[in-house]
Design a protein around this nucleic acid. Sequence first.
DNA 1: TTTAAAATTTAGACAAAGCTAAAAAAATGC
DNA 2: GCATTTTTTTAGCTTTGTCTAAATTTTAAA
Lengths: 221, 221
Amino acid sequence: MNYTISEENYLKTIFLLQETEGTVSTNTLAEKLQTKPASVTDMMKKLDAKKLLNYKPYYGFTLSAEGKKIALGIIRRHRLWEYFLCNKLNFGWEEVHLLAEELEHVGNKKLVDRLDAFLGFPSYDPHGDPIPDSKGRVRNIRKIPLHQLPALRPAEVCQVTNQSSEMLELLHHKQIGIGTKLEIKKFFDFDHSLEIKMKNSTITISEQLAQNIFVTYEQDL
Amino acid sequence: MNYTISEENYLKTIFLLQETEGTVSTNTLAEKLQTKPASVTDMMKKLDAKKLLNYKPYYGFTLSAEGKKIALGIIRRHRLWEYFLCNKLNFGWEEVHLLAEELEHVGNKKLVDRLDAFLGFPSYDPHGDPIPDSKGRVRNIRKIPLHQLPALRPAEVCQVTNQSSEMLELLHHKQIGIGTKLEIKKFFDFDHSLEIKMKNSTITISEQLAQNIFVTYEQDL
DNA sequence: TTTAAAATTTAGACAAAGCTAAAAAAATGC
DNA sequence: GCATTTTTTTAGCTTTGTCTAAATTTTAAA
Ligand SMILES: [Mn+2]
Ligand SMILES: [Mn+2]
Ligand SMILES: [Mn+2]
Ligand SMILES: [Mn+2]
């Protein structure tokens, strides 16, 4: 029912790795956690005994339903604290991750739910990652920089980093703003520019510009 | 330079005990920390080796200057988080101590100083205990319920708990309010009532009333 | 399909922090 | 001042989480 800081760090990291990789391997996890493969194996045995893992020796592991539930709780705390640090204590989004790594292990549910309410139930952390709600549910919409959007996926501009006048002039000229709906038609490998289709036009934008435009899109589909 | 959660709990508890007791004994500390005397001795050796203690085996211990500095940092974090929990997350003052016991071990200085600023540099935690500033200085003024005020110590009413109309009627009748200056002349053992001297009068008040009137006073002198 | 390389697990050790039981020192009582 | 009680320390064990080195299993290459 209660987990050590070390166990929590393993659970969280497995969750994040298996989102992209499916099954997680001993070496991959060891590298992410800055530890040794032998230590990972030891911990996997323990988490397996606690039924938090599907573990087949030599063939990697994934989280059980219970393991996922716990991981989502940790991720919720991490991202809520990141949001708090950025939006209440005025930290930059690049500073908050390390601090949240510590705060995420204060696990009291009432505290976390009150913090959530205090912050106005935010949907995304400062890096655009979705914050699970108090029941561990995650919205399927993700916020990413435009150049990471998969091709042909309908999306909507939700944030523009770099607020320089040059940037804003360019956006105005291309008629891009918060709420603009678009989708990527084509990536050009030569200079990593993109062709994007908007409601009434199709235009090309540079990699630098795309990196500073954030969009939301449906995860599945 | 960096201390474990266990070391921090020992340092903080020694600090708080030695404030009232002077030198701290093995058994006293063990009881406060809900551990065994043998464990205390082990830890005292370690803290002594790190030069955080003045430790003479069999004769108890006090914190070194460095030990005090670290303890004040922990106490600062504890009390700031308690303030945050009460005043921002609407916890009752009786709920916050246990939560702060965990949060106090997130030690990043920038985080704590920003939290302090966010809260408006509060001087007291929800229990009336003073919050050390970012340099570890503590104001010498303490807030306590009136019945705990030492006799003949000039003090000032700063808070009235129990806001019932009966209570307020009584305060009005006796001409006591926030800011009233007073000192205790005499304790009566029979019913624990008190005789207090105010600017223009000397009156007697009951124990129940005194328990609900909080006063500030200078610690030393 | 056999062999070499890579990945994973096991074996054995260690440091931190706790415990119990026994020994030693200090305090108390007569 | 000596004996008894209380307090504190020491000795030896346990658990958690880590490590290195060796053994084992899987994978890839020849
Ligand atoms: Mn993060
Ligand atoms: Mn984040
Ligand atoms: Mn407290
Ligand atoms: Mn307090």
